[in-house]
């Protein structure tokens, strides 16, 4: 039995009177990719935002490597100053990139790592070495994303697909345990989705632990080890891709997948 890297238990979240997440429970093993599918408004994005502490769940527990990062019933896990460190277990790639426009691709990738390095006790003494190390790491990541010739470009000089690949490099630079994607190709022109999906596929092949919210069904089926289908704030069904896409047990899953047939997304 492999210990799961991520355990999410009974997460509930409401905005005012609207229940967006109702008792969400799932787990993820190290090196695996889970894909969350479901129609818009089913709560997928809110779930990712809860994992990244951009929203605070009303109920539930989030554990990473058996460490309880969040427990709605334990106020000590909700202290604002501690949340910052907990966020570093997760990376998040946004639908619309949110690159920092005043920084080049390379600077975007280096910024957070450099700010964190300043907290190291040996920062003052080894400033130059640390900076070089961070720079080399960022350059390697951008090269891995196929952007070796774009490092000094500003976001407005890059295509959407290139921007999203910079955003992926930026998230990877902090070496998160779990990398989350929130519909990474939904803001892209159709001809640019391929390059981003290829990069994510490579990460999956390299055993990066990932949670991917996506509308690209064919991609989800190929890349994910596990599929979660959400509807109206609940997990309707979860299982291996072959099971969910081949023999869905629930009527709601069948109806949802039927909607994608022949749209080119499947």
């Amino acid at each position: 039995m492999i210990m799961p890297i991520l355990e999410v238990e009974h997460i509930c979240k409401s905005f005012h009177q609207t229940e967006v997440l109702k008792d969400i429970t799932f787990s993820l093993e190290k090196g695996q990719a889970v894909s969350i599918i479901g129609s818009s408004g089913s709560g997928k994005t809110t779930l990712l935002r809860c994992l990244n502490f951009l929203e605070t769940p009303d109920q539930g527990i989030i554990r990473v490597n058996s460490e309880t990062l969040f427990d709605a019933n334990d106020p000590s896990t909700r202290i604002e100053s501690a949340i910052r460190k907990k966020r570093l277990h997760f990376g998040l790639v946004f639908q619309s990139f949110h690159l920092f426009p005043q920084y080049t691709a390379l600077e975007n990738t280096m910024l957070a790592t450099e700010l964190l390095a300043k907290e190291r006790p040996d920062y003052k003494a080894k400033k130059k070495d640390i900076h070089e190390e961070i720079r080399a790491q960022a350059e390697a990541l951008l090269a891995q994303m196929g952007l070796e010739n774009r490092m000094d470009n500003y976001p407005h000089q890059l295509s959407g697909g290139q921007c999203q690949r910079v955003a992926i490099a930026r998230a990877l630079a902090l070496k998160p345990d779990i990398l989350c994607f929130d519909e990474p190709t939904s803001a892209l022109d159709p001809e640019l989705t391929g390059e981003v999906l290829r990069v994510i596929r490579n990460l999956a092949d390299g055993n990066t632990t990932m949670v991917i919210v996506t509308h690209e069904m064919a991609f989800a089926r190929d890349v994910a080890n596990h599929i979660i289908f959400m509807d109206d704030g609940v997990i309707v069904e979860q299982g291996a891709p072959s099971q969910i896409f081949g023999h869905p047990a629930e009527e709601r899953t069948r109806q949802f997948l039927k909607g994608y047939m022949g749209t080119g997304h499947f």
């Binding site: 990244n52 502490f53 951009l54 910052r84 460190k85 966020r87 570093l88 997760f90 990376g91 998040l92 946004f94 619309s96 949110h98 690159l99 920092f100 910024l111 957070a112 700010l115 964190l116 930026r170 998230a171 902090l174």
Partner: peptide, 13 residues
């Protein structure tokens, strides 16, 4: 845009 702050937050800033 609020996304700028959120991007900073998830990067541990």
């Amino acid at each position: 845009p609020i996304g700028q702050e959120e991007a900073g937050l998830v990067l541990g800033m």
